[in-house]
Amino acid sequence: MTNNEEKVEFEHHVDTSEIHSYMPALIGLGAGAFVAAGVIFMLKGFSLQLGAGLVGLFVLLIFIFLRGEIPRWPKITKEAEHMVKAGGTPGEFHEIGDVGFPTALFLLSEIAFFGGAFVAYFYLRSAYAVWPPEGLHHLDVVIPSIQTGLLIVSSIMIEWSTAGVKKGNQTAVKFGFLGAVILGLGFVVIQMGYEWPNLLTTGELTPRDGLFGASFFLLTGIHGVHVIAGVIANSVVTIKAFRNQFDEKNHGFLEAAGTYWHFVHIVWLFLFAFLWQDGLSYFQAVA
């Protein structure tokens, strides 16, 4: 069965109503209850009964989830496989509906995630007049500069690909994302394969070197994980592109993956400024 035939079969025969579920909201509520319980237990003198009650609520919600959701997974997986094999997701990103709104929501959650991480970093950093604290290694900017260059070029390649898919330029679609994957891998290799090992093995900076060391590895680590996820997503897009599964009308997944990659790039700029160049240092504690 060709991609177009699978696509038609998907559009006419597959029931997409099962894809919608109230379970994510339920899980969100349960996770919130769990975190609230954790906070309560850490606060001395607060009600243990309330904390225990919240844990009980979390366990109950997890049970409801397991009982109600898991039996539906085989059908949802089959429908998702149909969607992947049938070709690009219909609809363009800027048309909120198919890909745009879910992608935007996901990016909002990522902004909240990184925002929290940065706020925590600055809260810790604000107590120090000198940063990094005396005796610690000052980071060189050569490596992050190279990494920034890789991300810039990869974003340009994704832009080339996104513009190309709308004009039916399959060469741009294929090699744009392929280039982005290679450059993304280069970023990861430089960070996880060179910079981190170099810092750790020489002892110049380790996670045990106080708040600066811990913050550095935590922030670059979570960003690195996001880069790896972006490389995986871009790889999927590349494979699908080489199978000619994207065209002028069906390329939502391509745009979503590209948008996520651009977001990862933006976060890196702030990381570069805050970690390597001591950004916002004028709000530090006075010596």
Partner: peptide, 18 residues
Amino acid sequence: FNTSRFGLFVITAGITAA
């Protein structure tokens, strides 16, 4: 708002900052 404009936004931000 569309992906091309977002991409352009990110690229110009990256070049300026870098």
